[in-house]
Design a protein around this nucleic acid. Structure first.
Lengths: 298, 298
DNA sequence: ATTTAAATGATTTATTTGTTGCAAACATCT
DNA sequence: AGATGTTTGCAACAAATAAATCATTTAAAT
């Protein structure tokens, strides 16, 4: 709204060329941009003390097809101000004409970029930190994520394995995934990852764990996710995408941040663990070329 | 908007008491409060995927006289938000001595956000498109990603499975992962995901596939990745992170974009495949609550 | 002072809005 | 099963909306 608001600048520049009524309308719009976005044209006109038609005339004077475009302009500005950056994901390309592949790709990537930026909000950060704390205090960390969330769960577990031996991935062939919970205790914590639609298996296992006194923390997609009721801590990450599928990219980012916070907490221990892992994997000829510890990640 | 938003809290509290349609409406309102304030009820209903009447019913369910009051509530919140955004930033700044953990998280997330934005460069887009084209023309798509790249490979395969039967994930217990290549032909394509340090197993299998005439496309981290020499197409995604580990978030984003491009290419077929998958999974009681095809993703 | 052009106000029109009433579909419980 | 109450989709409605049209006023120029 503030920077490079072309309409705003145009109104200021052409203000002197306007008729008195137009000036009055423009002045009100300049001083109350939110109202333009939030209330009807007639109401804005009433507040500005001009005729409704004057608002239409103002829009046309500015070179717009009609008042709707003026409103749309200020609505877009409010969206960005309102919730930070995140608003790019909406509005499919309705340009009627055939959409090119690179258009789709750009929209997706920019949307994802905005969603990650939104995770920087104070509330999200607090949740990230609280969740990391809770995980840190656990004796063992059970990681649960079924179906699409499996990728996230697996990755979290993989990284945690490089860091130590506290992580247990609840997954396995023949439906034995939940067996590892047999010896779970209240000293343990379970990290559950699930987004809509929520897999029943995930909820059942989490419920079971909770009944055994295991603390639950979760990565999920909404305040009204069924996981919230089970969890001591929850991190919410957006999953909307303009494609057919929900996106897991923000969830993976959250998982990586959690891993980092856990690793950073005790740097010496982390470095030692990574060195160990490096030695081990080197002996197995895992990597194509010699690898520094600092390069770990695969 | 966040603190003491009575309506928000009420919706969360009474969410379980709502009918499915009301829940869908409420969920959208919770996740897109700005839209409620900025666009018409019918438009919100369309975006939320419910009937217009449902929005009215939601308002009444919450004890309001009508939808207008609901909109007014969010409009008021947004009015404060207009300059409240500045307040949010201020809160972050004057909190000067923010905890170290938050600093780490912010740095990581902003970095990731920037990396995704960078993927929008023309060169990257061209590579994405070319890779999608190559995958589209394949009879079968073999997906290979070991160690940390496993998460990406698995996710790509999972989504492709929902879309059809062309995908084969080269992974399996007891080191049998590569066996599926036995009947690979030059009509097939292999998608290889690998970042530094490159797993020897990945390179060996990719080499073998290439010798059988299978086309190779890859997601990797550099022009000088050993995968480049084997590949017809390669997409480069950044992996640097200021944590101990390399990040896979951009790679996942690339994978998701590829899936979207493939899905978008033949929308009718995609929709049919998703419907099929939906039916199948519904019969198995996979999901907690009924799921629309459009909701797929887990 | 008269003419002319622009600006403003009032009126009308075609849409679009939020709401409501009703019937079909659905689940629930004897 | 059968009956009952809820949920859902649809269509109709009146109110409100933005824009277009026409009439009136105002200001400027000859």
């Amino acid at each position: 709204m503030q920077p490079s608001d072309s309409l705003r600048e145009q109104m200021i520049a052409q203000y002197d060329a306007m008729s008195p009524q137009l000036q009055q309308a423009a002045r009100y719009v300049l001083e109350h941009p939110e109202e333009v976005a939030l209330v009807s044209m007639r109401e804005v006109a009433r507040l500005a003390g001009v005729q409704p038609a004057t608002m239409t005339r103002l829009a046309k004077f500015l070179g717009l097809p009609g008042y709707d475009e003026l409103r749309a302009h200020y609505a877009a500005a409010l969206r960005q101000g309102g919730d930070g950056f995140a608003a790019k994901v909406r509005q499919r390309v309705d340009g009627g004409s055939e959409t090119v592949a690179s258009d789709i790709a750009i929209h997706m990537l920019q949307g994802l970029s905005a969603q990650l930026a939104k995770l920087c909000e104070p509330d999200s950060l607090r949740r990230l930190e609280a969740t990391a704390d809770r995980l840190r205090s656990a004796r063992k960390v059970y990681v649960l994520g079924l179906r699409s969330s499996h990728a996230i769960a697996w990755h979290f577990h993989y990284v945690m394995t490089l860091l130590g031996e506290r992580s247990v991935h609840l997954d396995g062939p023949g439906g034995t995934g939940g067996d590892a919970l047999i010896r779970a205790t209240p000293e343990d914590v379970m990290l559950v990852i699930s987004i809509k639609p929520y897999a029943t298996g995930t909820l059942e296992l989490a419920q079971l764990a909770k009944e055994k006194g295991v603390g639950i923390v979760s990565i999920t997609d909404s305040e009204v996710s069924p996981l919230v009721a089970l969890s001591e801590q929850a991190i919410f990450c957006p999953t909307e995408s303009d494609s057919f599928f929900h996106t897991l990219t923000p969830a993976l980012a959250v998982s990586e941040v959690l891993c980092s916070l856990l690793a950073e907490f005790d740097r010496p221990k982390t470095l030692e663990a990574l060195q160990q892992a490096d030695d081990h994997l080197s002996h197995l000829n895992t990597w194509r070329s010699p690898t520094l510890s600092a390069t770990l990640g695969q």
